[in-house]
């Protein structure tokens, strides 16, 4: 597929890419710190991945193999739309295989297949500021980061425990990066938070509407905030994936009828497919002979 000649490679002009690239490099040098940048209007709406798209546009090259996921799946409408955009604007190869991708743009999930050194994971971030629900003012939160003044977040989590017996944050769980910056992981489920820690891939975060870029270099210490008597823990499901039998992946709940019947299936469609190809089966897999006939 060749790129659309009416636009520069990657849609953005070179001056804009340079500005983004400088911001990305500073973000890598200061892990977890939100670097302000001159976000541009993209042809997709704010809130739909414009930050991730700008980061991807600044990073992507002709030799890259791009994967785009939303909610873990390559075939959700917004993932399709963003993948089509980059196919048109760059002509690069795309894939649904996590292992084959050099560059992965994601919304709300980290792939189940462990990432490799050399891969880059770009997160779409709606609200980059971890302290935002506690302090709406940017002028204040910037000072709080400068002073590493994160007591309010510990108080909030403690109040959760006092009220509910639990920390009531199920996604976008706050983490401390390299012992210095409090960071928002974007709205990934708690289940994915441990994957950020010491990941060999480079992780970049783009918030277009809020005009911030931040990063986790490979092998960076990423610690979820918790308490000794209330350690961080991830979600568990009552049953394995109904299609591939996985017990180690994040499961989507699918409602089957109006009588309350439901099933759980992998949110990561590539992971689930790869397991099925390898012969793993779940309780609702079609009979073998039927699958062979397809």
């Amino acid at each position: 597929m060749t790129a659309d000649d009416n636009y520069n490679f990657g849609f953005l002009d070179e001056q804009t890419k340079r500005m983004l690239r400088r911001a990305i490099l500073k973000a890598v040098a200061i892990p977890g710190y939100q670097v302000p940048f001159g976000s541009r209007e993209m042809p997709l709406p704010y809130g739909w991945g414009t930050g991730g798209m700008q980061v991807t546009a600044a990073v992507i090259g002709a030799d890259d193999v791009l994967k785009v996921i939303d909610q873990g799946a390559d075939d959700t409408t917004n993932a399709v739309s963003i993948r089509r955009f980059f196919t048109r604007m760059t002509g690069v190869a795309t894939t649904e295989k996590t292992r084959q991708a050099t560059l992965i743009q994601t919304r709300h999930r980290v792939p189940e297949t462990p990432l490799q050194a050399g891969q880059i994971l770009v997160y779409q971030v709606p609200i980059p500021e971890p302290l935002r629900w506690l302090e709406p003012r940017e002028t204040e939160t910037r000072i709080m980061h400068a002073l590493s003044e994160y007591g309010v977040m510990h108080v909030k989590l403690y109040e959760d425990i006092a009220r509910h017996g639990h920390i009531s944050t199920a996604y976008d769980y706050p983490v401390l990066v390299n012992g210095r910056y409090l960071m928002r992981c974007s709205p990934i489920p708690k289940f994915d938070t441990p994957k950020l820690h010491m990941n060999p891939a480079l992780q970049l975060f783009g918030a277009g509407r809020e005009k911030r870029i931040y990063a986790l270099p490979p092998h960076t210490d990423v610690k979820p905030l918790d308490f000794a008597d209330h350690p961080f823990e991830i979600e568990h499901w009552p049953e394995p994936c109904a299609l591939c039998g996985a017990t180690d992946s994040f499961l989507d709940e699918v409602i089957l009828d109006d009588k309350g019947d439901r099933m759980f299936v992998c949110s990561d469609t590539d992971y689930c497919g790869e397991r099925r190809e390898a012969g793993h089966r779940g309780r609702m897999s079609p009979p073998e002979n039927l699958e062979a006939a397809e």
Partner: peptide
């Protein structure tokens, strides 16, 4: 080729800083 060369230059700089 400024578009492609600067992209490759950037990836090298990014690699160097990330490792």
């Amino acid at each position: 080729d400024p578009v492609s060369d600067s992209q490759q230059g950037f990836r090298a700089l990014l690699d160097a800083l990330a490792h």
